[in-house]
Simulated assay, not measured.
Amino acid sequence: MRILVVCGAGASSTFVAQRVRHAAQAAGRELSAVAGTEQSLPIDIDAADVVLVGPHLQSSLDRIRREAAARPARVILLPPDIYSDLHGTRTLALVDEALAASTELPASTERNPA
C-alpha cells in the first residue's frame, strides 16, 4: 500500500508519514508513506493508494477528492489531534478503517453478478 500524506508546506506531513511507516513496520506490515504538499498533489497522487489530508486543508478537501476521483486513491481527512499520535498507530488504524469501509457493499449489492 502506498500512502501520501498531504499538508500545506510538507513539514507536518513528513512527521505523520514517518510515524505511520514506523507503526506499519512494528506491526510487520509493508507499506510506503511519503509526504507531499497541496501544490505537489497533482503529481504525487498518481503513486498513491491512500491520500491522508492534514486537518488544516479541510477547505480544500472537495477539490482533493475531485483530483483523486479519476484514480483508485482513497482520500481521508485526518482529525485535528492527529499530530499527537506519536507512534503512528492511530493513523494506521484510521487508514485501515477507511479502507475496510470503502470495500463494504450494501447488502442489496451483489459482489459478483452473473
Rank of each mutant, 00 (worst) to 15 (best):
S102L: 05
T14K: 10
E97G: 01
T103D: 03
E97F: 01
R66F: 00
I64N: 10
Q58R: 15
A114W: 06
T37A: 03
D96I: 04
V95C: 03
T89S: 09
L78Y: 05
T91D: 05
R66E: 12
T109K: 07
T91K: 06
S60D: 12
V16R: 10
L57M: 09
Q39I: 12
A23K: 04
T89R: 12
I43L: 14
Q39L: 13
R29G: 00
I64F: 10
E30N: 10
Y83W: 09
D81S: 06
V5T: 08
A26S: 12
V16T: 11
A47N: 14
T14Q: 13
A17T: 04
A24Q: 04
N112K: 04
D85G: 04
V5L: 06
S108C: 09
V95Q: 01
A70T: 13
I82C: 08
R90A: 12
S13T: 10
P80I: 02
V16A: 14
L105Q: 15
D85F: 03
V34H: 01
P42W: 05
S12Q: 06
L31D: 03
H56M: 10
R71W: 09
G36D: 07
S32F: 02
A17Y: 10
I45S: 09
P106K: 03
P55H: 15
V53C: 09
A35S: 15
L57Y: 05
E110A: 13
A26I: 01
A23V: 08
V34Y: 00
P55A: 15
V6N: 08
Q58C: 00
E110M: 10
A68D: 07
Y83F: 14
V20N: 07
D44P: 01
L92R: 01
G36N: 05
D46S: 04
A33Y: 11
I3A: 04
A11C: 00
L31A: 06
I82N: 10
S84F: 11
A100M: 08
A100I: 05
A101W: 01
M1Y: 07
D46F: 12
V5G: 05
I82W: 08
T91I: 13
L99F: 02
A48W: 04
Q58D: 04
A47I: 00
A26N: 11
A35R: 04
P79Y: 07
S12V: 12
I76S: 02
A68R: 05
A68Y: 01
R111F: 12
T91Q: 05
G54N: 11
L77H: 09
Q25I: 01
L4E: 03
T91V: 14
D85N: 05
H87V: 02
P106R: 05
A17S: 11
H87Y: 02
